[in-house]
Design a binder for these strands. Structure first.
Length: 209
DNA sequence: TCGCCGATCGGCT
DNA sequence: GCCGATCGGCGAA
């Protein structure tokens, strides 16, 4: 039987809470009749137009329109001309905020992920926003603007991750001159080998112990 | 294991 | 024109 997807009310809350509670939930994507699943182990919050790292900080444009959409919808964009990144839109329609899905632990369909990715090691299949979209078959044309609450791209309930296993860090890839560079808006399952940017993460965690 | 660099393109100035 | 919520390959250590 099909597991229950998180509903729109789950996403219609503060973005930080959604990002924290998405850890442990299960991302599920079906393309051409093939379903892959993974446990979410890393997320980042992009908290609105006042957040200089959030695309919506430039205002409401054709590109950022999706960020203003209903809670639970998918904001999928192309980065560096070649990688897709998938976000779950949070808060009420009209408020531009979202959670970037940065890494998952593969649970089902690993063979499919290997075929799509051509990665040497399994830890490189889904440890990064571009990698997980590649492994899951998530692209803008397929999924941008659709909903994570139903259909071929869903996030379903999983086992909650206790606070002791969670760490919070600044977001990855934010330029040093960005005012929001140090905001602690990245949530990770501390000991998961599938978290991205492992080197920088280890450095940051040991420096703040 | 670390650090550097090029790929590639749409959105915005 | 410029640059990015990235990634993989390369050479050096």
């Amino acid at each position: 039987m099909r597991a229950r997807a998180l509903g729109a009310d789950f996403y219609d809350r503060d973005t930080e809470h959604v990002a924290r509670e998405l850890l442990g939930a299960v991302l599920e994507c079906t393309v051409d009749g093939v379903t892959v699943r993974g446990r979410i182990v890393e997320t980042e919050a992009y908290v609105g137009e006042h957040d200089a790292a959030c695309h919506a900080s430039v205002g409401r444009t054709a590109r950022t329109e999706g960020l203003f959409g209903p809670p639970g919808s998918a904001y999928v964009y192309l980065i560096y001309g070649m990688y897709w990144c998938a976000n779950a839109v949070t808060r009420a329609e009209g408020l531009a905020s979202a959670v970037l899905l940065r890494a998952v632990e593969p649970l089902h369909g690993v063979e499919t992920m290997r075929r799509r990715r051509l990665a040497r090691r399994d830890v490189d299949l889904t440890s990064g926003p571009g990698r997980l979209c590649d492994a899951f078959g998530i692209t803008g044309p397929r999924f941008h603007g659709r909903s994570f609450t139903r259909g071929a791209l869903r996030i379903v309930e999983g086992l909650a991750v206790p606070d002791a296993e969670v760490a919070v860090t600044p977001r990855v890839g934010i330029n040093a001159k960005n005012a929001a560079v140090d905001w602690p808006l990245r949530w990770i399952v501390r000991d998961s080998p599938f978290v991205s940017a492992r080197r920088d993460t280890r450095r940051w965690l040991s420096a703040t112990r």
